[in-house]
Design a binder for these strands. Structure first.
Lengths: 235, 235
DNA sequence: ACAAGAATGTCGCATATTTGACATTCTTGT
DNA sequence: ACAAGAATGTCAAATATGCGACATTCTTGT
């Protein structure tokens, strides 16, 4: 299946959720750096699969990662893009649960990987690591709740807009999102045809500008307020 | 709107996610107890609303709480039920974000509420509180991811089954869930009619037993394995 | 510059879901 | 025991979405 690799979105490093590393001092980062080992990945290369039980945390040093689940038919449901300073796999360290998601590299990517036992030891020694992780995961849960609400309550057009906002970095006015419509479609749980219609409407409203394997949000603020102005109309 | 209160589910104290308090020693609980103040709520009484900015954590001592979002038309999307030892509002302590959910009491309920500043001080003094909260929130995020995946990927019948499993306590074989079909319907993002059909089918398969304002899962294990046997068939 | 592949845009038809209505069953308060 | 309200069960018509097919546009490698 062709979309098994690089539904890329290369130039979007930070994504909404505050990166773990940004809450740590240079010293603390250096300490992590010593505790783990580095691995390099090519664009699209699989890092972890859903169901894996090897325990440990991964921190993105360069490049990015896409998190989602591949269906048996090859469709990919995207949950989030992670950029520099973000982590994944942390919950394999603190719980007994297997991995829930497939993670693959977006662009040339370097990961710092730390084993569960090693990372636990570090957290016990220095609680600030835990604090940083706690904040990160609370904010992530917040984001997931918003996605959930959008899927349940909003009609297709609004749902699409909301996901675009959730998948784009907060600090830009006019982000360029790099993915195929088919990927966004399965992330929203709709067919490509329906998504295409929705994007068409949003485009007519001059809120976005669809392109080939990419999509530009004309203005985040405008899209946000458009969405707000419609949020009173439920599905 | 009548369903603004008590879509109850009274006798289900612990819900899947490991309660925060269960990870703490008696001493540590006592310390929290001193730091906060108690408030009592009647069945169905509103505790917090989406958008509230008052910051602090709430811990359930007795009774339970239902977490979700009321739509403008009074429909209620349920995210989870919380029982004894669970917390909510913790992310108002560690982030700047407003509350995302409406929380109301299920049955006579006593909450221990601790202000953000107070709780932060406690966490700084004793990192074990943070650790407990970290684990809780990682497991919660895990659960949310499962819900997201179900909404996006599974056909109605399977989606319904999955939500029933996610909303019932893990440690029972044959839980009795207390809610109206209309509430479950909006939690799943479908109409009451569709949900009713789905429940009918599950009932025919002898997997559940629908009742008046309640629903019994005949056997959690059986339902689980039925779901697994169908999970290869995507929407 | 060109061909081949990949992704988008757009059909019509099949299917699933919503909507609004109504009858039925269950529960609760008096 | 009864009436009133609340929730479920079910229907037909309207709508929305999925599916499969195909033409078109864009990109990439040679």
């Amino acid at each position: 299946m062709s979309n098994m690799r690089h539904s890329c979105m290369s130039d979007l490093p930070g994504f909404r959720v505050t990166p773990f590393l940004s809450a740590l001092s240079a010293d603390m980062i250096a300490r992590l750096s010593d505790a783990g080992f580095r691995r390099k990945f090519r664009d699209g290369q699989l890092v972890h699969s859903r169901g894996d039980t090897l325990r440990g945390i991964s921190i993105i040093e360069t490049g990015g990662a896409q998190v989602g689940i591949y269906g048996p038919d090859g469709t990919f449901i995207l949950t989030s893009y992670l950029g520099h300073g973000h982590t994944f796999g942390e919950f394999t360290v603190f719980t007994e649960l297997p991995r829930t998601h497939d993670v693959s590299a977006v662009g040339e990517t370097t990961l710092l990987q730390i084993s569960a036992s090693r990372f636990l030891a570090i957290c016990d020694e220095e609680p600030a690591y835990q604090r940083a992780l706690l904040v990160t995961s609370l904010v992530r849960a917040h984001r997931l709740l918003e996605m959930l609400d959008a899927l349940q309550r909003l009609p297709l057009l609004e749902r699409t807009a909301k996901f675009l906002l959730l998948l784009s970095p907060e600090n830009t006015t006019s982000p360029l999102l790099r993915f195929r419509q088919s990927d966004l479609a399965s992330s929203l749980g709709v067919s490509r045809a329906s998504l295409n219609r929705a994007l068409g409407e949003l485009s007519t409203l001059k809120l976005i500008e669809p392109g080939y394997s990419q999509l530009q949000i004309i203005d985040r603020e405008t899209l946000q307020s458009w969405l707000l102005s419609r949020s009173s109309k439920p599905r």
